[in-house]
Design a protein around this nucleic acid. Structure first.
Lengths: 320, 320
DNA sequence: AATTTTCCTGCAACCGATTGCACTAGCTTC
DNA sequence: GAAGCTAGTGCAATCGGTTGCAGGAAAATT
């Protein structure tokens, strides 16, 4: 390993000058700066993260808490990780995963918390370093999330535009903020159009939605589009309709929410509200880094726009 | 932050004694050890990872390379992460994620590499720290993986036992070692029973398997069980059979491979060869830690046993 | 009783970086 | 021309641990 001192010798300066070239380049004469740069390059100098961490009292570690049970974790988490990891890597931060299986040991400079339920509030608020959440919350905690309300509004508007005359919402039972927001988006759109609303709520497993369709097939209204709070639910609906050889998308439309999952499985592919998961990871990380830099100062919230990914589970008349 | 020196003062010893209590407890008198312990406890002492790292020339970081495209990554990766993270956490190691989106910056003490294709060989072999792979390989590199051959053997044997008279293998096109191994398991079992073999190969996307069924429906042999190289493929088969209202599991059986994916989606649930992913994560991490401790000495390979998770896509006669 | 051995503990140096302060030029300024 | 500034650079101390060696007391050997 080449150290600051090695570079210093090579460039015929003190190691202080080298350090300054890295951290306060404006304080160093251009001439010296150049020779230091070439020395660093020739020796392939890489700063020792641990030494830096020690003197700066920074661990250069960000902990990612995944509070959800990993068994039921959505696959799109991988995209989130990629986004976070990319952004942290830019500033020499490393990403430490803390799951319900590992212990929280050692220090860190900040936290990103995902999958927080209302029961985790107390615990999260006790953390002594800057925190950013992935996912809406009604506390004063900084977070990044998809604009969930807008997502279901987009879905609802699209369904109406495609001529479905009855729009129903398939929601999730558990009462977390993002679930409310998705329901709210549907409700807002429907009320704007002065249309009657119908909401079904299941736990987030496809088979319940499927069973609902199975049990109520004869009562289903023609030309219905199901706006769903998740791809899993949408998938259950589609499965249920398939049993009766229902014509999708001609007679029934289905719109999911999330947008990663189904692209790998469903056939025909689902129309869905696509969350910008990777970008959300990037933003979470960036927000946290800024917060750390600004000494824990609140960064507010950041809601990214979802996009409607149109596929085979809804009619798709191009005309406006 | 309380330091070694703080603890030392409190316990009326030098900081050396405290350090030894932690690292070489046998060298310290019981009496002193006790008072040091209580001092550590009272002050809630946590060792400074960076300082330790600096003097020991260890970063305490393990890098996990995920070489696969994150977009198509299997959801079970989350379980792998959980397993790795748990094991690393035990020894104060932190897990740094390196994806195709982030850069590989800063040092580390070792690598776990997943999703390696044969095209990555050269690159991986150039790494200068201990490496353990997740996934079979034909090089001399240490790895952990499911016993893939055994997995498809179990699936095949079970299908036969349940009275399916024609067993066909739905495999994956790309030629990586685990794919060969899964095919081999099927072939071995069939040849042991002196039965004719049929192998189809697709890329690992469900729709191709589905389209195959769709296109060849009239030629399918009755009482066939499809032993598949992945849950995705199995899912495609099931989807295809559903189109024709085929009776599963009465007339056709389907067995998948992986065992995480489908539990969230498919209905009826698929019988599948369940990989012990979490445990594989633990073993990978443990193997790497041992390898680091033993100065890079090769640790060989570790193949864990899969289990057959029996569900609704195969007949299930309990009798022996 | 004197000497050796063993066991335990503390001092000082060091890992590789950064910060505060002192110092040397070279330039202004009066 | 002496005093005062300003840049630019280096020295020494520091972060929180660990290792090598020295030293003191008790136990074992002679």
């Amino acid at each position: 390993m080449t150290t600051l001192t090695d570079v210093a010798k090579r460039a015929n300066v003190s190691k202080m000058t080298v350090s300054r070239v890295i951290n306060h380049p404006e304080q160093v004469r251009d001439e010296l700066k150049q020779s230091v740069f070439t020395a660093m390059h020739e020796l392939n100098y890489r700063p020792n993260v641990a030494a830096k961490a020690l003197v700066n009292n920074r661990t250069q570690i960000i902990k990612l808490f995944i509070l959800e049970d990993m068994d039921t974790t959505e696959p799109y988490y991988m995209n989130l990780l990629a986004g976070i990891s990319k952004e942290l890597g830019k500033e020499q931060y490393s990403l430490q995963l803390v799951t319900n299986h590992s212990f929280d040991i050692g220090g860190c400079d900040g936290y990103i918390v995902t999958g927080m339920r209302h029961t985790d509030f107390e615990w999260v608020q006790r953390l002594t370093r800057p925190v950013v959440l992935f996912g809406e919350n009604r506390l004063e905690l900084d977070y990044c999330d998809t604009n969930n309300t807008l997502g279901t509004q987009m879905a609802t508007e699209y369904a109406l535009k495609q001529g479905y005359t009855n729009i129903e919402f398939i929601g999730i039972n558990v009462k977390e903020p993002f679930e409310y927001s998705r329901e709210a988006g549907y409700l807002m759109s429907m009320q704007n159009h002065q249309l009657p609303t119908t909401i079904h709520r299941f736990s987030n497993h496809s088979h319940l939605a499927m069973e609902y369709i199975e049990a109520n097939w004869s009562d289903l209204k023609a030309n219905t589009c199901y706006v769903c709070a998740s791809d899993r639910l949408a998938f259950g609906i589609e499965k249920g309709l398939t049993i009766f050889n229902a014509r999708v998308p001609a007679d029934f439309g289905i719109i999911g929410f999330d947008g990663v999952f189904l692209n790998q499985v469903a056939t025909p592919k689902l129309t869905t509200v696509q969350q910008p998961i990777f970008e959300l990871g990037v933003r979470c990380a960036r927000m946290l880094l800024t917060k750390i830099e600004k000494d824990g100062q609140s960064q507010g919230i950041e809601q990214l726009l979802p996009t409607l990914s149109i596929a085979g589970s809804t009619r798709n008349d191009q005309g406006d």
